[in-house]
Amino acid sequence: MTPRLAISGLTRRFGDLAVLDGVTLDVAPGTFVSLLGPSGSGKSTILKLLTGALTPDAGTIAFDGRPLLEAGRPFAFMPQRDALMPWRTIIDNVAVGLEIAGLSRKAARQQVAPFFEPFGLSGFERHFPAQLSGGMRQRAALMRTIVQDKPMLLLDEPFGALDALTRVGMQRWLETMWGRHAWTALLITHDVREAVLLSDRIYVLSARPARIVHQIDIDLPRPRAVGPDVAAIEARLLDHLLTQHRD
């Protein structure tokens, strides 16, 4: 099967700083793939190359077998910070992608309204972001990503800024949502457990300059609970990540 996303030999430097050194990975349709790596290793840079905010020095990106430029913005992107606009209400924040795609504000609102219930935000449509808790803001940002209805999601450490308890709640919630919708997603994280609980496949990135040093396919049934299987995979991944730090 043609992978939805195929990245090959992706290389990028910033002046003297070599950040990506030939990153190669695949994401199959309908799968959830995580990219695990130490901070500063170049994870966000990979997503910027995908969204077109940056251009690669070398390497290719193919989407459904075609060069990315011909695929016509196939990604819905969730940046590392929620990037909610403080002057827009939650519903208008969530609808901004549809507005940019050409819908009127009214039509965009109508289209996103049904998502508030499953995202646990009913009643908060007219609130401003400053009135929401961290977990709610993150769900709003994720909703803004989902409602764009793109073939693939790019999530940059969506739960990185949350406290531990909220984060676990959000991971569980995302997993149930995932089971229902079969989105194709590339998740960036440095949280090993998050990656194991959510992913069909995990790629481990080396420290800068980054390349893929390990790949694991996870076949555990969902919903996943923390048990011996999960712990074993976590241990293996941690081993790979820690080896990275030694050199």
Partner: peptide, 23 residues
């Protein structure tokens, strides 16, 4: 303006003028 917000809007296909007006 938050650079991440501008990047997000560009990733949605917003033109430079649209980014100006929206962000």
């Amino acid at each position: 303006t938050e650079p991440e917000l501008e990047e997000l809007l560009s990733s949605m296909g917003a033109s430079r003028w649209r980014v100006f007006l929206t962000a």
